[in-house]
Design a protein around this nucleic acid. Structure first.
Lengths: 206, 206, 206, 206
DNA sequence: CATGAATGAGAGTTCATTCAT
DNA sequence: CATGAATGAACTCTCATTCAT
């Protein structure tokens, strides 16, 4: 039988143990609800039922925690976006599905999304978090391309400022995270449908 | 006749001296761009060319500064909203003008708006800033009423979830503050026009 | 009359105020007697009669304190060495005067010398303290040159290993700092005389 | 006949297993090169390829490690000194042999010597390490006696301050440990010869 | 014997705030 | 009005040590 013993002498800080995941979830909730700076490592430790020093058995620093949370989310989202683009039949369907998937992400990544929204500006000033800007740029390029394709194919209004429309949609989707309640009456599906309708057809009766 | 001049040389802490206004402007920019917590009183003092202790000749605390910034903005905005509602001919015109005025506010209150957006959640946990929640509720009531009136009068789609539509519009307007550049090519008027068009008629060609 | 008001907004951390000098003296004594690592900033603050946080009004960090102490000492010592070499008539006189000056330095720089001796190895691993290695090399070059000159001129034994002789002398001088007591019976002059005699003529009766 | 084997499987904490010796050697190197305080138990464990907690199967504490290292060295050195004194024909030969043996010790006890040199002051403040001061005193008594005997017998200069001469010799010998490289060109024998020559006859040509 | 999760004390540092000058 | 020295609480992080598995 093959030994399962670890070869490395200090695995905990790097591998994906269950405890780590639990702690990251706890930290994520706090970062999202109180803000990164306003959340102390003692807050996190208290919420986890351990002492603050014990967190450093699992993570190098508070920054490492938020780093891991954000990377996880961005990786997932990037993969989802790529899949949507591969499978969409036309620009209109692509935009709608991108939006729907973004709302869907709120169910499992609400904390990460909120952190990405609220703390990117602060964190991106540190070299370590340079990838946040890169990710934002990549998203922008993706969405903008779809909007342009749709405009060329006649699916979207010609008088649309694509850059502004992108920002409009992006903000519309992500700011929802601030008030979305996964246990509330408004499911992410309902919100997505309403927003897509407003976006596509406007609020005014023609 | 009783003089309106102050009897004693009251400390500047309460009067509206020019220096105060300057300092508030400096503090506002920093709060808006770096975040309230990430901005130290020394940052503010440095930017003003004085020592941090000297700020306390003008303000009681860091909180007092943000408090004054936010109250100024909310008072102005409230008065503007009231005027718009008095003068608007119908719900559609009212909504459009409310949006246009919100965008217009960005020219003189960008910092305050950003702070209101980013820090309300954090600040509202302190009793002193309870008025932030009240102001938010008041705005919601105002806008929601207009949307409902418009729905009843047949101006807006009947299948609109008014609460969601309000949030949609609110977020759409306020998040702009994060990327709006008062010295950039996109004037607040252009942004307002584009957003109103999307909002009213959607992005899809009918 | 010319104003003496400072132009800079934050002078204390950089200029040479009296308080700074006092605090540095206190810190130096502690670093020398307990070791740099074993001395906490709270120890220093306690000895100075203030709180630990108050130290940071004057210094950026514990490292900055030891940095300033060491730079002061090395600068002084470098200048003294240069003067001795300029004024010495021959290598034998130069070596004797270098040693005498080194012992003399103990009266005003005992703490700095002890720190330089004890903590150089630890501190030099940080980039900031790279100059410690440079200073050591410079001292070595100076002393070695004098020893070689003396050997060539026939003043010193020909069978002397110059590199070893340098280390011998250097260690002989600097280790004294560990037990030298400026208020004890053995003045630095007495020690210097004895050591120079041993060094020049040996302990054995010819 | 009573077995000398231990009756129970006593924990390795007290026995002299090979693993213990290995670990002590590793710890000794680190204590010597980085300093006792600057060496963490994790450093030691990492160097040994185990986790820090596992060290506590072998030793009670970090202090126990350094304690054992120092006791080993001091015992050996004490026995060597006693043998030298028994066998030496006269004070001059005794001093020379003491020095030679001290240099010889560097080959197997370099780490211990360095630790004794660097950390005695710090460690001796704890009761447990009171024996460090005693050992130092004992060494001083031994060497001083030999120097006095030699002075009386006319072997050493009469104008020698014995106390100072002792310190001179002691420091001369022990500080070598800071730069001695057992794999370098300068063998401990060469260094001993040079230093003994300087000590006995001085550096100046008579 | 070793692991890995945890403890608990204490380290260096930050920062809003105060106040005599 | 401004300075500059100080406070005091809180912060992130370190580390020797313990112990169930």
């Amino acid at each position: 039988m093959v030994s399962t013993k670890r070869l490395s002498a200090r695995p905990a800080r790097e591998s994906g143990s269950e405890r780590r995941a639990e702690l990251l979830a706890i930290a994520g909730e706090l970062f999202a609800s109180r803000g990164f700076l306003a959340t102390t490592v003692r807050d996190i430790a208290d919420a986890a039922g351990i002492l603050s020093g014990s967190l450093y058995h699992h993570f190098d620093s508070k920054e490492s925690m938020v780093d891991e949370i954000l990377r996880d989310f961005l990786d997932t989202q990037r993969r989802t976006n790529e899949r949507v683009l591969r499978e969409a039949s036309d620009p209109r369907a692509a935009i709608i599905e991108l939006i729907r998937q973004s709302f869907a992400a709120m169910q499992h990544h609400q904390a990460a999304i909120a952190i990405f929204q609220n703390e990117s500006k602060y964190l991106a000033q540190f070299e370590r978090f340079g990838y946040l800007r890169q990710a934002a740029n990549e998203f922008e390029r993706t969405w903008t391309r779809v909007l342009q394709d749709g405009q060329r194919s006649g699916a979207f209004r010609a008088d649309l400022n694509v850059k502004l429309a992108y920002r409009f949609i992006r903000d519309m989707v992500w700011t929802t995270v601030h008030w979305y309640n996964p246990r509330g009456k408004l499911t992410s599906n309902v919100i997505a449908d309403q927003y897509i309708k407003i976006l596509c057809d406007g609020i005014v009766v023609p």
